[in-house]
């Protein structure tokens, strides 16, 4: 029946098996679709469940003004006060200093890896930077505790080396990898024709980079920085272990502070479920969620802008 002249239709499954085959595919494809939207469900889930634990306090007597402006954080006292300003200041100061270190290093490394390196060197550098990203945050915290701490005490002649500077150095090293990889993507997205045209006119590699590539990749680099900020704001274990754990609005980079994330990690275990102290930690969690949501949203919009162009 399959001789060369045969032109009858290929007969495979019987009608019954065909129906079974179809039903199976339908089930599989439905599962795939559900998994496809799972990320959305999870993000809503995170918001819902964190907010759910925070809501009774948030709508039941929490003084939001006090939360955001007072530095009186006495959640355990008989007259509890929830002023998180010092925690917010702690988060901001560590993040800011971390970015001052990380942005030049991260973008510089991105430019170096993308424009000045080729072949083996490039591969090895990328692997090292990937390793940087792989080191767990608790190990970074440990490094801050046992390695950076004495170094800072010696260098700056301070009594404690667990402070903003310590945390910021760790955060900088932790947020650099994402900046390098997103920044490198942004530079790669600039068409080679730009480079060739500029080099044909006699420009050096550096002139091409400075005058042509950086302006062209501006948005992508901005997104890289934003994602680095998002990572730094949300980092928990390293800052918990390395910034000195004192509720304090800092004056100098050598002051000890405590961040929002560190506070939640340190105190949640000691609160009674359902207590106000417990709930205020979820309020702080909601705040963090909102901040990082906005930062990531902005970064994403910026990246999309790049892709559309």
């Amino acid at each position: 029946m399959d001789d060369p002249g045969d032109n009858t239709r290929l007969v495979g499954r019987s009608p019954a098996r065909e129906r079974l085959h179809r039903a199976t595919e339908l089930v599989i494809e439905t599962v795939i679709r559900v998994c496809g939207v799972s990320a959305v469900i999870f993000v809503f889930g995170i918001f819902y469940f964190v907010f759910r634990e925070a809501a009774p306090l948030l709508f039941g007597g929490l003084d939001l003004g006090q939360l955001l402006t007072s530095s009186a954080w006495y959640p355990d006292s008989s007259n509890p006060r929830y002023g998180a300003f010092a925690l917010i200041a702690g988060t901001l100061s560590v993040t800011l200093l971390a970015m001052l270190i990380a942005v030049p290093l991260g973008l510089g490394a991105a430019v170096f890896v993308s424009e000045f390196c080729t072949g083996r060197t490039k591969e090895i550098l990328k692997i090292v930077i990937e390793l940087l990203a792989a080191i767990p945050s608790v190990v970074w915290g440990f490094i801050g505790l046992v390695i950076l701490n004495p170094v800072i005490i010696d260098l700056f002649d301070t009594p404690v080396g667990l402070n903003i500077l310590n945390g910021a150095i760790l955060l900088a090293l932790m947020s650099v990898p994402i900046m390098v990889s997103i920044g490198e993507d942004a530079l790669k997205a600039v068409p080679d024709a730009y480079r060739e045209a500029a080099e044909a006119m006699g420009a050096t590699r550096w002139q091409v980079t400075w005058r042509v590539l950086l302006p062209a990749a501006r948005n992508g680099l901005l997104a890289a920085v934003l994602l680095g900020v998002g990572r730094a704001v949300g980092e928990t274990m390293a800052v918990l272990m390395a910034t000195g754990h004192s509720v304090n609005v800092p004056d100098s980079p050598l002051d000890s502070v405590r961040t929002i994330t560190a506070t939640i990690a340190a105190e949640l275990g000691e609160t009674a479920q359902g207590s106000n102290h417990y709930r205020v930690l979820f309020v702080l969690g909601s705040l963090l969620f909102l901040i990082t949501f906005l930062v990531n949203l902005t970064a994403d919009l910026v990246i999309r802008g790049v892709k559309k162009r």
Binding site: G234, F282, L288, T292, D300
Partner: peptide, 14 residues
């Protein structure tokens, strides 16, 4: 993007 960006401690609260 957000799932990746939400702080780990918020995942813990969740």
């Amino acid at each position: 993007v957000n799932l990746a960006g939400v702080p780990s401690i918020v995942h813990a609260l969740f």
